[in-house]
């Protein structure tokens, strides 16, 4: 492999990583700024998963090892699963208590 080649991969990886971090930031900002539980869950599931995807991709590129890459992919998939399931469960929990919480949310 030539030098330039490597640096190109690294550049891509770096930008993926930074981008991923930015999506994480977006998730956090959403968590803080959005008005109620459900909106916050939107931010978390979608933004964080994209963030994780980008980070995994970046790291996979850096690692240059199919085993690692596969592991990272698995981790991302599992993250996806965990995020959707958790989001659904939390949303549902909040939903069933919607009348109670919405008034609380209003006051908060």
């Amino acid at each position: 492999m030539s030098m330039g080649d490597t640096s190109l991969v690294e550049w891509i990886a770096t930008s993926l990583l930074v981008l991923g971090a930015l999506f994480y930031l977006a998730g956090t900002v959403g968590l803080l700024r959005f008005p109620d539980v459900h909106c916050r869950l939107h931010a978390l599931t979608k933004a964080d998963n994209l963030g994780l995807l980008l980070v995994c991709a970046g790291l996979g590129l850096l690692a240059c090892d199919w085993q690692v890459a596969a592991l990272l992919g698995t981790i991302w998939l599992l993250g996806l699963l965990a995020a959707t399931v958790s989001a659904h469960l939390i949303a549902r929990h909040a939903c069933r208590d919607h009348s109670a919480t919405s008034s609380r949310t209003g006051s908060a």
Partner: peptide, 12 residues
């Protein structure tokens, strides 16, 4: 499960 990951929707 996938609804939650689409733009702007969340299965609640």
């Amino acid at each position: 499960s996938t609804v939650s990951l689409l733009p702007g929707t969340l299965s609640a």
